[in-house]
Design a protein around this nucleic acid. Sequence first.
RNA 1: GCCGAAGUGGCGGAACUGGCAGACGCGCCGGACUCAAAAUCCGGUGCCUGAAAGGGCGUGUGGGUUCGAGUCCCACCUUCGGCACCA
Length: 798
Amino acid sequence: MDRYEAGTVEAKWQRVWEESRAFEVPNPEPGAPRSPRKNYVLEMLPYPSGSLHIGHVLVYTLGDVLARFYRRSGSEVLRPMGYDSFGLPAENAALKEGEHPRKIVERNIESIRGTMQRLGWAIDWSRELSTHEPEYYRWNQWLFLKFFEHDHAYRKAAVVNWCPNDQTVLANEQVKDGHCERCGAEVEARKLEQWFFRITAFAEALLDEMKELEWPERVLAMQRNWIGRSEGAEILFRVDELDLDLPVFTTRPDTLFGATFFVLAPEHPLVDRLAEQSPNGEELREYVRRAAARPAAERAAGTGKTGIFTGFFATNPVNEARIPIWVADYVLMEYGTGAIMAVPAHDERDREFAEQFDLPIKPVIEEGELIDSAQFSGMPHEEAAKAIVEWLGTRGRGRPAVSYRLRDWGWSRQRYWGCPIPVVYCDDCGIVAVPEAELPVLLPEIEDYKPKGIPPLAQAEDWVRVPCPQCGKEGRREVETMDTFVDSSWYFLRYCDPHNDGAAFDREITDYWMPIDHYTGGVDHSTVHLIYARYFMKVLNELGLVGAREPFKRFFGNGFVTQGGSKISKRSGTATTPDELVEIYGADATRLAILFIGPADQDMEWTESGVEGMQRFLRRLWRVVGEVAAGGEGRPSDPSGGDALARKAHRTIDRVTDDLGRRHQFNTPISAVMELVNDLVKAPSDPAARFAAETAVSLLQPWAPHITEELWETLGHERLWEEPWPVADPAMLEEDTFELVVQVNGKVRDRLLVPVDLPEDELVARAKESPRVQAHLDGGEIRQTIVVPRKLVNLVVG
RNA sequence: GCCGAAGUGGCGGAACUGGCAGACGCGCCGGACUCAAAAUCCGGUGCCUGAAAGGGCGUGUGGGUUCGAGUCCCACCUUCGGCACCA
């Protein structure tokens, strides 16, 4: 048998898989019942803004191991691939390289596809898609029209996050610590007209339906934080001078008797009216201007409160106390009602403000009970909260209320490289949807698409000017484009039915495959893509377009791969690319190495010594299998030899199947197979050697599909990728003997090999006979004897 | 401050429901092969003590439950991630 040459073996099998279309899966026949064997395995699609890096190798190898394992376990596996090719990442890459984004992404897609094929990922390439192609974004536009028609999408003026570097608006989810998630520039506040999706209308559903998800707790927790549900009450404060009621949201209605002043956010619509009627109106307006100019980051830091008294008073509904109304920028317009009752005795921020402006501080809770609170005094404060809201309710001054931190999703962008939004602005008709029949609205070619603050599409005058679809008068097209997260909020539905040119997808087909059974990707998308896609699914469900309400039944959040440590590369000193790794070590060794590092859901440091170790392991496997195949000619594979090696092989089947299939561990199965191979190397002429070799090869196939396919052939078989997953013989998992651990006072003193069927009293007798144990009993009296069947005997002496 | 995850050899990590701590790999040490090196193979490798047999200690810290704790409970420390003038 020849020496192991990874390159040759890998090229051979990749060609075979391609020619036999090994990983393509057909859609069900119309009317076919949903199969319990269907299994949709997906990883987040890549941005083709560059080439793949070691982190991608982790994600897609994870998915690949699962897909290959499920396929051999009898599942009908759908595992497609595509490219998130519109949007900022690609456009910025294009600007940097000075070429058109389409050219850049299409070149990158070519290169990425090549890398994916060289890594041997089992993908159904017949379903490949790119979001920048009209065949895809046409349906993006169609879905938008459905959202628009049913008032899930709307346009409004709002203070938004503006990235001065990328010259575009960012969603809240794309701002981290006041900086642009992509370029790191400090985000500014700007008031602009923008497109939004009403994701807040689904806040409760997004929270509630998490119950059905098999997701890591940390990701669910992040979504819970992001949605930020608070339970409390809405309470009305009377302003007599203006003859109106001001609502406030509070989570602490029990402190209502301690409210000593009232605060409005500077952006509150009432402030203008107050300024008109106030003697110090000019001062008030000046304060509002200054607050608006203050950098968002400084305002959020919360140090050094500023504010101004309006001259007006509000009446506290519980005790008729007249409290002064202030305007201060520590109150946020976006949360609750933009107005608060201030309780300085029981709220840190209110206290700081009160101390600074010398306002009264009135404690109303002592040791958990209300004081100075009329008929509620003496009540435990939690009980009082309910009682006060109830009391207010009977008088029409308050009711229980829930507030959320989640904001509506702003998704229009002032950039070129994105999906055009199919609406026309008409002076007479307002915002008019482009008729479905006219889709797609193609993205026009323009010379200069550099970001300048105004959308680049505005320059394409011929394209912009268009008759109003409703009245025929001249109108203007929307010149903003969609955020790339719109594209990725439903791509998994298109994979189900990717070539449908009459609809975004056929509901019967998506209902067959959806929801995704196993989704994999980075946890950095926890409060971005993962929440948007869940929202989309709920809207599509309510529009009757899909049956499911959750897209991802199970989500696996892979860890980050760092490549920062010492000795990265032998040549350039920079990180080794996946293509180079395949070239040097082979795809199989690379795949094994990235998964062997540790638990795949934790961050990990990539080191090349790991992949060298895997290469050694594969060479060992190659050699020993060759030896077994040659030496055991004519000797049948014997799975029931009754000896240690056969039992080890069965135990390995059991371990690998359980670790991968039930526990979703990707590293420990590799160890288990290594153990089996180590045993095989020590006993290559064992009667069960052939069976052990077959088992090791078969079990390793999801991780190292090429070498195992070759060795499977060496062992006289074919098409391992279609071979049913091995099943352990329960009888062979049973041992005749076991190692009895003997403890004295909980410390191990001896280990005895004993038959499994030995009765308990006999186990104790044997334990006591052991000279090592005798030495530690030291003639003392045995006060207690613990026997754990098949495990140990513990003798407790006094 | 609130929410979440995690602390185990020189390193990455195993140990699933309380029952042999350190599987597997990396690294290191010794040996074989070789003129030599690489590759490969064989053996060793938690710490302290001992010539050895053995003994003692050991899973972030301090307590507790238990015959028995890396695993359960209480209190704390540290690191990482999310949210945060959110009323």
